[in-house]
Nucleic acid binder design. Structure first.
Lengths: 233, 233
DNA sequence: ACCTGAACACCGTTCAAGT
DNA sequence: ACCTGAACACCGTTCAAGT
């Protein structure tokens, strides 16, 4: 990882909000959200921490900014999707957008956490939702049903679902499996379920493939349900 | 708000992990999660910050602990629910549990954030999920379908759904409404939807009633979908 | 066994001062 | 107009020392 500071001082790019945001995203991508501090951001960009405050009001603005950049990236990808949206076609169109958004987020694993923590919704997020509403409305949703749909999808609309625990994440870990077995008396159903699920599909814990399967199961459940409601009106 | 420190030093309750966790929950309930610092926790409990480390390894353990306490509270409430679980009755039983869990979380608005940030799933959470799995299995779910169901419900299983933005939260705020109107050209569908949704139900933004309606819409959508899958096997 | 004082390595941020 | 040095008010945490 080379910082801008190291690349020789003869060509010194001036600071700017945009450059700060790009640098902040790189820091979070490389080292996680914890590693994004104002001091490190300054270092990455070859300046002192105090210089940042000339271009940005505070750290909150940095977080607002990187969230907006990521969602703008999502909008760019998603706007290139050209699918019919009328009638029953709404579902495929929405599904493809959501899965495309997810692909972008997989490159920025910190983004869901930042998006959730924003109190001011960025224009980029509003634009993303606006397009989704448009597709649903084309598909025959009333405004009211579209509104319910957005709430029901929640963060899934933007391509992520936070799980409180991954029931099969520890399946490969002997320690964790043993710990769970020792509690089989207290957790009979969980243990029973994991025994079968793991046995059926030993590859289900490799990488994020498993999450991808479950994510698609979840959105299809929701989209199918919404489609039935749409048809009933 | 009185701290234990103020209540006269003649009766000085000794520190303990449990007392720290109770105090930490009080701090977070009263002042939000940001206000929960080790130094303030010590103050609340009438000790120096360094004393905490005798009873607790670090702040992470405090956060793990208060998450566990809240979910234990949920388990206590939920275990008192006595409903039939066989066959089609599974749905009502699960629904009531989830809504009861939600009631507990409404008293601890910081809890969802803490629960999401835990990397070690607490035993209390495992127990909660174990009971849910048991009900579904009684209701005729295969282990595999129960597994999918847990993922699909995600945090909703524990009673909360984080929204990235609340499309109608700013409906009562003239500033925000004006800002949105000025972007009507860019956000035609969002503006159109809000115009109708707000008009239809002017009370939809008061308190968390609105969220409650949408939360129930969301879980019913999921539970109904899952029920159809259950019947097909 | 339980608690503390002094200290360390970090934060975000302000403000007057430099070019 | 843009950047910085010194300083402030906070963090979480360690460690040797007190009772």
């Amino acid at each position: 990882m080379t910082t801008d500071a190291e690349q020789g001082s003869e060509l010194r790019i001036p600071l700017s909000r945009e450059r700060l945001l790009r640098a902040a995203i790189k820091i979070a991508d490389d080292g996680g959200l914890e590693s994004l501090t104002m001091r490190r951001l300054a270092e990455q960009v070859g300046a002192e921490a105090m210089s940042l405050y000339y271009h940005v009001a505070n750290k909150e603005e940095v977080l607002d900014g990187i969230a907006e950049v990521v969602v703008t990236e999502i909008n760019d990808v998603v706007d290139r999707i050209d699918l019919p949206t009328a009638g029953a076609d709404w579902k495929k169109a929405v599904r493809e957008r959501i899965l495309a958004a997810r692909q972008v987020l997989l490159r920025h694993p910190w983004a869901p956490r930042v998006l959730e923590s924003r109190t001011n919704t960025s224009l980029a997020v509003l634009r993303y939702y606006d397009a989704l509403i448009g597709i649903m409305h084309d598909g025959g949703f009333s405004w009211d049903l579209a509104h319910h749909a957005l709430h029901a999808l929640g963060s899934r609309a933007l391509g992520f679902a936070q799980e409180l625990f991954d029931p099969s994440s520890g399946a490969g870990d002997p320690d964790q499996t043993a710990a769970l077995q020792s509690m089989a008396g207290q957790l009979p159903n969980l243990v029973g379920m994991l025994a079968e699920v793991v046995h059926d599909d030993p590859d289900s814990t490799l990488g994020w493939c498993d999450d991808q399967t479950e994510f698609e199961f979840g959105i299809d459940l929701l989209l199918d349900g919404l489609d039935r409601m749409r048809e009933r009106t």
